[in-house]
């Protein structure tokens, strides 16, 4: 079956880089699990979505004035399945989104998240963790549209890659005209654990407004040798040391997940993969 374009970056670039769009087999998209939610004004809401079987999930949420939404999305599909998910969140005046995303399973996963900071003083904190091994393919596209005045968007992405994994991560901060006084921050930190990984990072910043403060940073490197040396000189073996360091890097995201049970599940899922023999 043919591949279908699932998501695109807001501004295209060189074709040879192969990062303009993400595609997925058409049959993955056949039966979406749809969820819509409206968070009324002045309230708080928690939503946790865990994908273990579904091919395609599509979530659309409106957060009312001065409300807060805690959204947790965890993807732990078995390694032989493909997966697609999309999330759209629209924030009204003073609304706050706290979002934690874990992308750890599936053979191929495509994910798109769009947060529209429509109301003045709205705020979004999105923390993402991804882990890729073997021949897995992870393709992420996060877009933060800042429309209201004094909005704040934070996108923090932590990832670890090993074996022959292929990963593309696109993160966009889009300061639209009128978003005066807004701030945006985007960071991706990638730890590459073994030699045949292919990693693409595309941090985009678009601005039609001068009174904004935008910053993005990407760092891609192997595991810190000094940390490894420290741990190994204390009697831990290579795999154990590596596992500890990677887990420590993931903690900022895992800490945002309220359910201890779910945290443990993710932890043991990743631990199992990190500890396996190469």
């Amino acid at each position: 079956m043919a591949e279908k374009i699932f998501s695109e970056i807001p501004m295209r670039t060189w074709h040879w880089l192969g990062v303009n769009e993400a595609g997925i087999e058409e049959n993955v998209l056949l039966n979406p699990v749809k969820k819509t939610l409206e968070v009324p004004a002045n309230s708080e809401n928690d939503l946790t979505v865990v994908y273990k079987e579904d091919n395609y999930g599509d979530i659309s949420i409106k957060v009312g004035e001065n409300s807060c939404l805690k959204l947790t999305q965890v993807q732990l599909l078995p390694v032989e399945k493909d997966h697609a998910n999309e999330v759209t969140v629209i924030l009204a005046k003073g609304a706050h989104l706290e979002m934690a995303v874990v992308e750890a399973g599936a053979k191929k996963t495509v994910s798109k998240v769009k947060v529209v900071l429509e109301g003045n003083n709205s705020k979004a904190d999105v923390s993402v963790l991804y882990f890729g091994d073997e021949k897995r393919h992870i393709d992420l596209n996060y877009v933060m549209e800042q429309k209201g005045r004094n909005t704040e968007a934070n996108l923090n992405v932590y990832g670890a890659l090993m074996d022959e994994c292929r990963k593309v991560c696109r993160g966009t901060l889009d300061f639209q005209r009128g978003s005066k006084g807004s701030k945006g921050y985007e960071k991706e930190q990638v730890t590459v654990l073994s030699g045949k990984v292919r990693n693409s990072s595309i941090p985009i910043m678009l601005s039609g407004e001068d009174d904004v403060d935008g910053h993005h940073a990407v760092s891609i490197g192997k595991i810190d040798e000094e940390k490894m040396f420290y741990l190994m000189s204390r009697g831990l073996d290579l795999k154990e040391s590596r596992r500890l360091i990677v887990e420590a890097a993931f903690n900022p995201v895992l800490d945002k997940i309220a359910s201890e049970e779910l945290r443990d599940e993710i932890d043991s899922y990743i631990k199992g993969r990190l500890g396996k023999n190469e």
């Binding site: 501004m11 670039t13 060189w14 880089l17 192969g18 990062v19 300061f175 005209r177 005066k180 590459v192 654990l193 073994s194 030699g195 045949k196 990984v197 292919r198 990693n199 693409s200 990072s201 595309i202 941090p203 985009i204 910043m205 678009l206 601005s207 039609g208 407004e209 001068d210 009174d211 904004v212 403060d213 935008g214 910053h215 993005h216 940073a217 990407v218 760092s219 891609i220 490197g221 192997k222």
Partner: peptide, 27 residues
Amino acid sequence: DISRSDTLPAMDIEGDEADIGHEATIG
């Protein structure tokens, strides 16, 4: 606020021994 400024960097890195950093600010 009638002008535009866009930043579109892309990095495509193979292997595990590269050390790549990118930073951008706008304002």
